[in-house]
Design a protein around this nucleic acid. Structure first.
Length: 484
RNA sequence: CGGGGCGUAGCGCAGUCCGGGUAGCGCACAGCGUUCGGGACGCUGGGGUCGUGGGUUCAAAUCCCACCGCCCCGACCA
């Protein structure tokens, strides 16, 4: 961006210091604030409004695909959490424990849920008796606590909000089908609502969820070239049904352990929005989830209160009637220029300027946040033009992000090239990997890059290439990246 | 958990070393007036346990000791 075009001067340009830029956007756009406890944050109304929009859109998809919402307890007795040992071992370093009720020490410690497989599994064993009880398709919206050592607002906080689905099925095939259906739903949701293109695939053994048979994930590339996991879908197989005794009588009157899945997406999505779309002037929110889709800024010149304001009020109420989220900024203590910068920083997709000149000409000036393009629009055309603009901005943000992802996805043929590319340009490195944890770990040690996902069978165009590190024959086409 | 940085008004900082002595600046905030098509200006005003505890001293933001917290960069994770 050219210097004279950069009107917002309150934040560090992201090219100068990405971390600082990220933190400043969060505080100055009033998305969140640091809490007085380490690793915790307050999600402020503007940030929470984004979450509510994301949640509404995702919740609709979850329900449309046959799932129902429920709510399970925040606390999990230690004995329950400890039943699946791989699960406990995976989470134990980051579990917070309640040891006292008032002054009295508890007989058994209570874990603050780091995820709810255990408590939900224990209840499912009571509810499921017959194949007629299946599939059981439940989702919960909840808060989760994980005692992380390194925290960053939205990306990794001690407490976060998420959605976790927990389903039970008659067969292994059905569980697998559910796992992949959710993965596809997540991808569609993120791409169409958040306008962020993602890659999807299976996680390596090392990166999979503790206690799962297989973990699938969607991953996106942030604009600093690092990858971010945006959602996971796990096929739990019978691991949890065996320890929680979730059994049913099948259609042939045999007693069987049930097959389960679990899947989740969190407030981390907000961090992704910031890092995938934001620019030097601040946030750029996709219209479909922006709390404010258009802001009207009246130009306070001359007798504007009588001449301009009534027109602005009328525009707002008309657009509001159409279901658009439109704000009229009639604060008198700020100049129009100040407001322009403010709303830009907060990522509002469209600004509608209206001043005395426009009123005379029966028009308003529409300015796009994504491109900065201004155009006069006749007042009676606003109702048609605005939805068009919003939809165009949504598409264009996605297209820009996709272009970025494609130009930063590199097909790699040698380990030397792998290391060089990572140093010089980051991004996704697409290459073959033999499937051995030893190779994966050595690559991580030497380059800080991890396997984000391995492409699924059906996505593979070619087979029989060789592992980037050891040279063994391999069918695993993997995406590597440095990740958050 | 390692390495670095920082705690002074809501935010950003100066003052601390090298000299202990009325706690300052910019922004923000409040009032009034003039302004307003890309972060306006004038005047007036309010706001401080100088991170916490201890010590030295007539006197500590400043010197000494201990502790706490936060941020950033690395090893582990939605």
């Amino acid at each position: 961006m050219k210097k004279e075009d950069r009107f917002v001067k309150q934040i560090t340009p992201k090219s100068v210091d990405f971390s600082k830029w990220y933190g400043e956007i969060i505080r100055k756009a009033e998305l969140a604030d640091y809490a007085p406890m380490k690793g915790m944050m307050i999600i402020r109304p503007y940030g929470y409004a984004i979450w509510e929009n994301l949640k509404a859109q995702l919740d609709k998809r979850i329900k449309d695909s046959g799932h129902s919402n429920a709510y399970f307890p925040l606390f999990i007795p230690e004995s329950l959490l400890a039943k699946e040992t791989e699960h406990l071992e995976g989470f134990s370093p980051e579990v917070a424990w309640v040891t006292h009720g008032g002054q009295e020490e508890l007989e058994e410690r209570l874990a603050v849920r780091p995820t709810s497989e255990a408590i939900i599994g224990s209840m499912y064993s009571k509810w499921i008796k017959s194949w007629r009880d299946l599939p059981l398709l439940i989702n919960q919206w909840a808060n989760i606590v994980r005692w992380e050592k390194v925290t960053r607002p939205f990306l990794r906080t001690t407490e976060f909000l998420w959605q976790e689905g927990h389903t039970v099925h008659e067969t292994s095939e059905e569980a697998q089908e559910e796992t992949l259906m959710i993965l596809a739903m997540y991808k569609e949701f993120v791409e169409s609502e958040l306008a962020i293109p993602v890659i999807s695939g299976i996680k390596s053994e090392r990166e999979k969820f503790a206690g799962a048979l297989a973990t699938y994930a969607i991953e996106a590339l942030m604009s600093d070239g690092k990858a971010l996991q945006m959602g996971t879908s796990h096929n739990l197989g019978q691991h949890f049904s065996k320890v929680f005794n979730i059994r049913y009588e099948d259609r042939n009157q045999n007693i069987q352990y049930a097959w389960q899945t679990s899947w989740g997406m969190s407030t981390r999505l907000i961090g992704a929005l910031i890092m995938a779309h934001g620019d030097d002037s601040g946030l750029r929110l996709p219209p479909r989830i922006a709390p404010i889709q258009a802001v009207i800024v009246p130009i306070s010149l001359g007798n504007w209160k009588d001449e301009v304001l009534p027109v602005a009020v009328k525009i707002q109420s008309e657009l509001h009637e159409m279901g658009l989220r439109v704000e009229l900024d009639q604060r008198e203590e700020f100049t129009p220029g100040w407001k322009f910068s403010e709303w830009e920083m907060r990522g509002v997709p469209i600004r509608i300027e209206i001043g005395p000149r426009d009123v005379k000409e029966n028009q308003a000036i529409c300015v796009r946040r994504d491109s900065g393009k201004k155009e006069p629009v006749p007042l009676d055309a606003l109702a048609v033009k605005l939805p068009e603009l919003l939809s165009d901005i949504q598409k264009s943000l996605y297209a820009k992000a996709l272009e970025f992802q494609m130009t930063n996805t590199h097909d790699i043929e040698s380990y030397e090239e792998f290391k060089a590319t990572l140093e010089e340009q980051r991004g996704f490195l697409r290459t073959f990997w033999c499937g051995k944890t030893a190779c994966e770990e050595r690559i991580k040690e030497e380059t800080m890059a991890t396997i984000r996902v391995i492409l699924l069978e059906e996505d593979k165009s070619i087979g029989g290439e060789r592992c980037i590190l050891c040279g063994e024959k391999s069918e695993h086409l993997a995406y590597f990246a440095r990740a958050y």
